[in-house]
Amino acid sequence: MTSSSVFSTLAPYGWDEAWADAFAPYDTEGLLPGRVIRVDRGQCDVVTAGGVLRADTAFVTPHDPMRVVCTGDWVAVEPGGTPRYVRAYLPRRTAFVRSTSSKRSEGQILAANVDHAIVAVSLAVELDLGRVERFLALAWESAM
């Protein structure tokens, strides 16, 4: 696939010149650019110019919960293989983070490279202002 077709296919997902520049070293290795759209149990779904594929995150899974692959990350994926592997992820522009429920003071990354956040609550029940405040604080603390 040509770089222009990759660009036009991934642009709706946020691909731009800056991401293309950051991906350049991985392009020379023959890896595919893609955006993570789902993560579960060490596997992720990645949208690429060729479509959505399933990839294993074993090579990029650190012990730090703030550095695991998450929804919104731009990654470098192997072009083939069973299973396919994510080989690297690009530096994040933003991160949507919450504190964990553990006794340690560490965060848990919920999403990466988010440009906008919308707080929506049901109008079918009485408005819980405390809940809305927690959602807004989460977005604010995540530096969105």
Rank of each mutant, 00 (worst) to 15 (best):
E133S: 10
L90Q: 06
L110H: 05
S102E: 14
A143L: 15
V52I: 13
H63I: 12
D45H: 04
I37H: 00
T71P: 03
P12H: 06
T82V: 13
R84A: 06
Y26A: 12
W74V: 06
V75Q: 00
P62D: 04
G50R: 10
A22K: 14
P65A: 08
F7W: 03
T28Y: 12
R87P: 02
R87V: 02
L31T: 04
S3H: 10
P79M: 10
Y26S: 12
F96E: 02
G81A: 15
A76H: 05
W140F: 14
A55M: 07
D128S: 12
Y26R: 10
R41Q: 11
D16C: 03
E126L: 08
G107T: 08
R84L: 03
T71V: 15
V75G: 01
F23H: 00
R93S: 11
Y85D: 06
E78C: 01
V60K: 04
Y13D: 01
V75L: 00
F23N: 00
G42C: 11
T82N: 11
W140D: 13
G50L: 04
R134S: 10
Y13E: 07
S8I: 14
A20Q: 13
D115N: 14
D64R: 03
Y85W: 09
V119A: 04
N113C: 06
T28F: 03
L53R: 06
V77I: 03
A18T: 15
D73I: 01
L138S: 03
G107S: 10
A112H: 00
P83L: 11
V52P: 09
R35I: 04
V86D: 08
P79I: 12
D27L: 08
P79E: 12
R93P: 02
M144P: 02
E17N: 10
A55S: 09
T57N: 09
T61Y: 03
S105Y: 12
A124D: 05
S122A: 14
G51C: 07
R35Y: 02
R38C: 08
P65G: 04
Y89A: 07
T48L: 11
V52L: 06
I118C: 00
T2S: 15
N113H: 05
V47M: 10
S4P: 06
V125S: 13
V75F: 01
S3Y: 10
P91L: 06
A139I: 03
D56M: 07
S4D: 15
M66I: 14
D27H: 14
P62W: 05
A143Q: 14
A22R: 09
A117M: 05
A137H: 08
Y89N: 07
G107M: 10
R67L: 15
V36L: 05
T57F: 08
F23V: 00
L136F: 03
F23I: 01
A76Y: 02
R35Q: 03
A95Y: 14
L136T: 13
V36Q: 09
S102C: 09
D64K: 02
R93M: 09
R92W: 07
V77H: 07
T94Q: 05
V97Y: 01
S4Y: 11
E106C: 07
T82C: 10
L32T: 10
T82R: 15
A111K: 04
E141T: 04
V39H: 04
A143E: 11
S5M: 13
A111D: 05
